[in-house]
Write a protein that binds this DNA or RNA. Structure first.
Lengths: 340, 340
DNA sequence: CCTGGAAACGTAACCGATAACGATTGCAGT
DNA sequence: ACTGCAATCGTTATCGGTTACGTTTCCAGG
């Protein structure tokens, strides 16, 4: 076993091989202008010392690093699914991935968070970045693709067809016979939250059901934010017979609150979510939800970013993916006395 | 909106503030020796330009970066769960996390993969690293914690009590009345794979059932590796009445193969996995498995690494976490003709 | 007025690597 | 032998930031 606790640098290799660091660099990067004999010497020295080039140092000087970045502020199921898609798209592409996640998991959602980390990475380390559910429009030297962008965003982005998804979800409830349908909205800076609320309103309008503003709770996609809202809605004497939550995380909290209040699902209350995170399939009853394939979101975002970096992208900058309704046990027709 | 497409560097700030970069650096890092007036000037310039220090550049010169690394070769449910635990442990700790994942998701599992990336990161970027299911013992200048380490590893690590877990799982099958129990092993360089096989043998021994080597298939934890093995086991005339797979990913593939061969689970075949990944709860039937709380694995690893970096760790270097059997629908007593 | 010393700040080396450029060498052609 | 070109390789500037060290400024004390 070689004692290798000290970091081995390029100059160490150069010294052992009896050449300059420039030559070592050329060998490492396979550049032109080194004789076979020298290459062999350098290779031997590299082997001997167990040298690996420093990503940091090379990225400082180089423009291309073949590393893409992903910035996420939380790390729940949503992000995890996205990540699987990203990894799939990047597999065997020559691009590595660096995910930057900060330690302020809870609270302190400061507006500038992503921008700060994006800047710190994209300066040199990464060739481009994916930002998941950002808090603002990003500025960067290198390409940035937003997954679920902010409202009014004009940059590259990938998102689900939230309007259609939400409309379908609420239509499903209407078809079952529900008329008083509560809604728990998401963080309103995101285009998705906005569209899902639009879908809610559109579906009601389409069915000739007036929108009751008091049935709308203002959440922020953070599951916890749904708890007081759900409680408020469900403790009303004229509680809704169904609730549509703008995300599965929040919908699952609605289920919890319902249980806590002694309401049976779907007997006393139907619940619909949005996202189709894995957990939604394994609750009892299963959560009816709108599938937006977070995997696909990640896959497409990575595919786009890859091409943007290499300058080969020729499709529209904003991708919208289809959604589909997944009906599980959390929705049913309202009991006759609820219908009134 | 400021036109800020060009990267803003420290010297830009210095120029605007009319000071040297050294002074800017002192202000940014809150070091001693700058007058209040100058600090204000520099702060103003920073605001004006929207400057953010480059993580790369500063990490090159500095020793501490307050960034921890995580290296993973694949990105399936297992890793995702681990990650949630890591993030939780790091939340509000002052440490950020960088996850490095390479693009060679499938195949090309070269032995030196992690070592290479570990070296590239730990040279300067990170203060320490977590390596998930490594392929070898890691050498590094900074602390490394292995999750599910290689066999014989002496470095810091976190793992489940694989021996007890596997023993319990097989005992469960024995209790149900199974005698011919197949086993699909994991990658044998990992301590976990070894221990799970040990548990399998121990449970059979304990019940006085001889170990039939032909009932043992050699997988590598990669789900796909289980397919031909399961097929071979289940197409034998004297096929086992139950199969214990060393991971859920492989167990789920066994379920698929069983379906493909027209075998009912648990009617014709009982299946037990190991890990308890989220998907195992939502298959039909649900997979009986050994829960090893990957979340906890990640949490403990991050906690240990954090302390190792700050030099405050005083507990044993190797953490073993308890497991528990989760019985779902994929296991049942064998039918009488299977028992023979 | 002079001196000492601390505070404030700039200069330059440095971290590890890359790349433009220039210098050297080798070899073929005359 | 001499020129010319290409192959080979070292020197040096550079990336963006940090820090050791040296210099200047300023004020209190003698």
């Amino acid at each position: 076993m070689i004692e290798a606790n000290a970091p081995v640098t390029m100059s160490d290799v150069a010294r052992i091989a009896g050449v300059s660091t420039a030559t070592v660099s050329r060998v490492v990067n396979g550049h032109y202008g080194v004789s076979a004999r020298t290459i062999a010497q350098v290779r031997t020295a590299i082997q001997e010392l167990g040298y690996e080039s420093s990503l940091v140092a090379s990225s400082l000087r180089r423009s291309r690093t073949n590393v893409l970045g992903l910035v996420a502020h939380s790390f729940q199921s949503y992000t995890a699914e996205v990540l699987k898609g990203v990894m799939k798209a990047l597999s065997r592409s020559g691009f590595d991935l660096i995910i930057y996640a900060n330690s302020d998991l809870y609270g302190s959602y400061s507006e500038g968070w992503e921008q700060r980390h994006l800047t710190r990475l994209s300066g040199t380390l990464t060739d481009g970045c994916i930002v998941v559910t950002p808090w603002g429009e990003m500025r960067s030297r290198t390409p940035v693709v937003a997954i679920d962008p902010v409202r009014g965003s004009t940059g590259p982005s990938v998102m689900a067809d939230n309007l259609a998804g939400a409309t379908t979800a609420v239509a499903h409830l209407l078809d079952l016979g529900h008329r008083r349908i509560g809604f728990i909205a998401g963080r309103d800076s995101l285009a998705s939250a906005w569209s899902r609320e639009e879908g809610y309103r559109a579906a009601l309008d389409g069915a000739g059901v007036p929108v009751d503003p008091t049935l709308i709770g203002r959440g922020d996609f953070n599951p916890e934010s749904a708890v007081p809202l759900a409680r408020a809605l469900l403790q009303r004497p004229d509680r809704p017979s169904a609730i549509f939550a703008a995300s599965d995380g929040m919908a699952l909290k609605v289920l919890e609150v319902a249980r806590e209040l002694g309401l049976a699902v779907p007997g006393d209350l139907s619940v619909v979510g949005f996202d189709n995170i894995p957990e939604s399939a394994s609750t009892e009853p299963g959560l009816t939800t709108v599938d937006q394939s977070m995997y696909q979101l990640g896959y497409e975002a990575a595919r786009m970013l890859k091409s943007l970096v290499t300058g080969e992208w020729d499709e529209p900058n904003q991708i919208v993916l289809p959604t589909s309704l997944v009906v599980r046990g959390s929705t049913a027709a309202p009991t006759s006395d609820q219908r009134r």
